[in-house]
């Protein structure tokens, strides 16, 4: 009898997992509107990754600024190395030989404190790394969601992205058990175009 209940419980768990897991998202690539699939994306997003690279390209008035942040996780420590482009200012002394300058540096964040800074200080802190993406069905418009990717316009950028003012947002995420890459294109609050690429390392 006891064995029977154990078997029954195991069977129920398998059925439940099958229902909650990607089973609701069609493996053959067809769409799913299942809220569970989005919850699974949230779970996947919050898993432990060894590293995340954040590449941002900002475009405005014929200029394009690129920046790259490499976040490496080790327990409570996050090492952030970065290469950041900024426009240079003009002076009367001489014409600019190049319109951009590059800032390079590295910070180590332990808990809420920055314990190391090397190179150019761009004011990174633990607070800079709080936030996150939130996946909910209602945040997307006409999503194309499969077991391997989510491609969709974002209906509610503020809620999805966690920052106000961004618009015309589109997301293209690829995953399988873990996220591989999330590409977000949008218009920033001040009108500049932005492409944000999160690349996950496991």
């Amino acid at each position: 009898m006891k064995k029977f209940f154990v078997f029954l419980a195991a069977a129920a768990m398998i059925i439940c997992l099958a229902g909650c897991d990607k089973g609701n998202t069609q493996v053959d690539g067809t769409q799913s509107q299942n809220a569970g699939a989005y919850e699974q994306l949230n779970e996947m997003f919050t898993r432990s990754y060894a590293s995340i690279t954040v590449d941002v390209t900002d475009t405005f008035d014929g200029f394009s600024l690129g920046s790259s942040y490499n976040l490496i996780y080790s327990g409570e420590k996050i090492n952030v190395s970065y290469t950041v482009e900024r426009l240079r200012k003009v002076s009367l002394d001489a014409p600019l030989s190049g319109d951009k300058t590059t800032l390079v540096g590295e910070v180590l964040i332990e808990g809420d404190k920055t314990t190391l800074l090397r190179g150019d200080d761009i004011g990174l802190s633990a607070a800079s790394l709080s936030g996150g993406l939130v996946f909910k069905e209602e945040y997307f418009r006409d999503p194309n969601l499969t077991s391997m990717y989510l491609r969709s316009d974002v209906a509610d950028p503020d809620a999805f992205f966690g920052k106000a003012g961004y618009r015309d947002m589109h997301v293209d995420a690829t995953f399988m058990d873990f996220f591989y890459k999330i590409v977000i294109t949008c218009t920033a609050p001040q009108g500049n175009g932005a492409e944000i690429v999160l690349t996950f390392g496991v």
Binding site: V56, E85, V90, S130, N192
Partner: peptide, 27 residues
């Protein structure tokens, strides 16, 4: 021009911080 550069750099920084925040959920 330099004022515009300041504003543009600030915009770029703001977007980068938003992107870093988006990646920081994990913490």
């Amino acid at each position: 021009y330099n004022d515009a550069v300041d504003a543009y750099n600030a915009q770029a920084e703001e977007t980068e911080r938003a992107a870093l925040g988006a990646a920081g959920r994990r913490r």
